[in-house]
């Protein structure tokens, strides 16, 4: 894996976006029945900060990210990014999906360059693609097809595909979920470094309490579906952090308590 410090081209400073979410309700239809998923979500995220969304499976975390990306629109309530209502998807807000979902007919290089090609700026910025591939440690795999990659490599390609667009808001839906634990630890450190250098706003959905506490400045804990925010933890520790920090252990106990898992600690 290439150290972050060697990279310069990708995600150069563009100020992060501010998020304002005001009493957002959202429901799906499931076999004719309404299925309420988000039940009055309210929070703001300061520009350039790193926030984690933590909650039980199926509570609506991915749904909230899709709303922020503009892929779906809330049943009720306002979602504002930089003061404007979220409309259609925009390349300034990039989402990394739970599944890498690479395009199987495109090589790694062509997958990463997808956003630049879609916006018609690929010719001028081919170097950015190379840089992004290098950033996630996949140099030499440019011409590989997705089925020739391991699950973790595919997930890293998905990350590169997002980063190459220099987003101002990065929506990460369990981006490290499929990685082996070693790569995962490395990638966690790299995510922090990336966020610090790029100055973007990052929202990370994860199941992993340690990951949320180690990476982010603030952890929002969701209750079971229909989701509300049950806790808002500040992680008041400077970077670089140490996994063994006693303060992290304390916060972890608190977070598990909010998730109803205190007994396991």
């Amino acid at each position: 894996m290439v150290a972050l410090a060697t990279n310069t081209g990708v995600a150069s400073a563009a100020a992060g976006q501010k998020i304002d979410i005001q009493s957002v309700f959202h429901q799906f239809e499931l076999e004719g029945e309404p299925l309420p998923v988000l039940d009055g979500i309210d929070f703001s995220v300061e520009p350039g900060s790193f926030v984690a969304l933590l909650g039980p499976s199926g509570c609506g975390k991915s749904t909230l990210l899709r709303l922020l990306a503009g892929l779906d629109h809330p049943t009720k309530g306002d979602l504002k990014v930089d003061g404007e209502n979220v409309g259609d998807p925009d390349p300034s807000r990039i989402m990394v999906f739970q599944d890498p979902t690479l395009f199987p007919w495109r090589t790694v290089w062509d997958n990463v360059s997808l956003g630049l090609e879609a916006r018609g700026i690929l010719k001028k910025s081919r170097q950015r693609v190379d840089d992004a591939i290098q950033l996630v440690g996949l140099d030499g795999f440019d011409k590989a097809y997705p089925h020739q990659l391991s699950g973790g490599m595919a997930q890293r390609v998905a990350l590169a595909r997002a980063l190459v667009n220099e987003p101002r808001l990065l929506l990460l839906d369990e981006p490290l979920g499929k990685l082996d634990s070693l790569t995962r630890l490395t990638m966690q450190t790299e995510l922090v470094g990336l966020w610090q250098r790029a100055g973007l706003t990052a929202v990370l959905v994860t199941h992993d309490v340690e990951e949320a506490l180690f990476l982010t400045q603030r952890v929002l804990i969701f209750g079971p579906r229909p989701a509300r925010i049950v806790a808002d933890l500040k992680v008041d520790l400077p970077y670089p952090r140490h996994r063994g920090d006693p303060r992290l252990a304390e916060l972890r106990r608190e977070a598990l308590g909010h998730l109803g898992l205190a007994a396991t600690w």
Binding site: P89, P91, F97, D99, T101, F103, W105, L114, G115
Partner: peptide
């Protein structure tokens, strides 16, 4: 796969790109 469209849309794809570079290759 509808996710292909979602991904391309968040990356800034316009409908023509979705047809020519996503739908058609995937349907080949």
């Amino acid at each position: 796969n509808r996710d292909y469209y979602d991904i391309a849309r968040t990356l800034g794809a316009k409908p023509s790109f979705l047809i020519l570079k996503v739908a058609i290759p995937a349907a080949l």
